[in-house]
Structure formats: C-alpha cells, structure tokens
Computed example of a mutant assay.
Amino acid sequence: MTLSPQQKIYLTDFEQNLTFAGFFKSYKEVNNKVIATLQDIEVYDYVSSTPLFCLEEITLKRSKRKIYIEGIIPAC
C-alpha cells in the first residue's frame, strides 16, 4: 500500500472499536503488523459513528487483521 502524508484516511481499530480519521504522517508494515502514525485526528465510536474526541497525533501498532484502512481522500 502506498500512502502519502497528505492523504486523509479512516483507520478502524477493531480491538478498541474506534475509527480514527486523520492524515498519515508515516506508515509501514513489519511482520504482518501495521505501524501507522496519524495527525490531526478525529476519533469516532466504530459502531455508532459518534464523535468522541480529537487528537493531535497518535501511533497505532496493530496486527493487519485487527485494523482496516479505508476512505483514502486526496487532501485539498
């Protein structure tokens, strides 16, 4: 997967039942794990899509089976 820092994405973490909407700062895959750092993030409850809070930056380290990346939208 090729991703750039200017791409807005939706990353769903099935372990935490959360969706993170933000911009990639970095992304890599190592041994079936994803290490993704996002910035300017809005966090939502995955099931209800209820907005929960905002974060400046977060790094997620998860098994590729426990996350889903979708909705890659070019930044304006």
Rank of each mutant, 00 (worst) to 15 (best):
F20E: 01
F53L: 01
F23L: 06
Y27H: 11
L11W: 02
F14C: 08
K25S: 12
F20N: 00
A75Y: 00
D40R: 12
I69C: 08
D40V: 07
A75N: 05
T19L: 04
T50F: 01
K33W: 13
F20T: 01
V47Y: 10
Y68M: 13
K8N: 05
K61I: 11
I69Q: 03
I9D: 11
L18H: 06
G71E: 14
K66A: 10
A21M: 08
T59R: 15
Y27A: 09
A21L: 14
T37I: 06
I9L: 14
T59N: 13
N32Y: 08
T2M: 08
I9R: 06
T59Q: 13
E15T: 02
K66E: 07
T59C: 12
S26E: 12
L60I: 01
T59I: 06
K61N: 12
E57Q: 11
R65D: 06
R62G: 03
D40A: 10
V30F: 12
R62I: 00
T2V: 05
D13T: 00
N32D: 10
C76N: 14
I73H: 12
Y68G: 07
N17P: 09
Q7E: 09
P74T: 10
R62M: 06
Q7R: 09
K8E: 08
K25P: 04
A36V: 11
T12P: 00
Q16T: 07
I41Y: 03
K61R: 10
N32R: 03
K33V: 08
C76F: 11
K66V: 05
V47W: 02
D40Q: 14
S4V: 03
M1R: 05
Y44L: 02
F20D: 01
S48E: 11
S63F: 05
E56F: 09
I73Y: 13
V43F: 13
F23S: 01
G22R: 00
K8M: 09
L38D: 01
N31A: 08
L38F: 12
F24P: 00
N31C: 03
M1K: 10
I72D: 05
C76R: 12
F23V: 04
N32H: 06
L38T: 06
N17D: 14
Q16L: 11
N31D: 15
L60P: 00
G71A: 15
V30Q: 15
N31P: 09
F24C: 04
A75T: 11
A75R: 14
R62V: 01
Q16Y: 02
E15F: 03
G22K: 09
P5L: 04
T12W: 10
K66C: 03
I41A: 02
F20C: 03
T12Y: 05
L55S: 04
G71Y: 14
A75D: 11
P5W: 01
T37D: 02
A36H: 13
Y10P: 01
A36P: 02
K61E: 14
T19W: 00
L3W: 10
G22S: 04
D13C: 08
R65F: 10
I9G: 10
I41T: 02
L18V: 08
K28N: 09
L18K: 01
I9C: 08
D13E: 06
Q6A: 07
E15A: 04
Q7T: 07
E56I: 12
S26I: 09
Q7V: 06
Q7F: 10
A21K: 13
V34E: 11
K25W: 10
A75F: 14
E57M: 13
T2H: 04
V30C: 11
T37A: 08
S49Y: 15
N32I: 02
K61L: 07
F24D: 03
K28T: 13
D13G: 04
